[in-house]
Design a protein around this nucleic acid. Sequence first.
DNA 1: GCTTGACGACTACAGGCGTAATCGATACAT
DNA 2: ATGTATCGATTACGCCTGTAGTCGTCAAGC
Lengths: 121, 121
Amino acid sequence: MAERISEAEFQVMEVLWRDSPLTAQDVAARLEATGWSLTTVKTLLSRLAAKGALATTEDGRRYLYAPAVDRAAIAAGESRRLVDRLFGGRPAPLVAHLAERGELSSADIAELEALIRELKQ
Amino acid sequence: MAERISEAEFQVMEVLWRDSPLTAQDVAARLEATGWSLTTVKTLLSRLAAKGALATTEDGRRYLYAPAVDRAAIAAGESRRLVDRLFGGRPAPLVAHLAERGELSSADIAELEALIRELKQ
DNA sequence: GCTTGACGACTACAGGCGTAATCGATACAT
DNA sequence: ATGTATCGATTACGCCTGTAGTCGTCAAGC
């Protein structure tokens, strides 16, 4: 459990979080933009299945793949790792960093503001 | 430029961001908690110097190491990567995630609130 | 001067990752 | 029935990473 997922693997997961179950072909088709060959995608699918991040069900001679882990759980874990590692666990400096580089649109700021208001109660 | 720094390497950088220049010995001493051998630390220092993240000045027969990259720049870059990858570039969902898991203390929330207020002008 | 200890350089090596080709089996079309 | 396309499994391979040992050299103490 709690197996780490690499970046390329994560992109594969994204496809399946969006729509599943899918065959290897389908997944590869949706990853056309990456330029990866079909075999590359199959390798990633196998590795993900091996580490328990994907569930497979047989469909004749092939597999249908579906996520076995929650996207939110992965995202939360990664976020926490980063915030711990870079900012001693405090999220404000992270936001400050993003802000400093002009990475925050006013929509982002409004969104954060609303979120904060909500958190305060 | 823009060479990526691995996690172990990052820990070495942390030491030098806190206090520099230092000899390999000194760095290793401050990383005692990791249990790494002296040679391991030296390897990491070499790799960091090779990728331009550290500057070295000769001090007799040995080197003094000092950061050649800004901690803030690294942190900002990593933050952006994560937010892009996991949250489509929008930081609010990240904060929401941290909040959802009870990762935010009321001090954190206050800090964020102050930051937002500042950003709004 | 000779030994010894410390230094950086070089070498090592297993595991993960990105990327992919090949292989053996099977389903399907003819 | 036979050829062909397709599947997953297996193998490949170079790079990065974590972790560390060895080597040649030089400085310092005796």
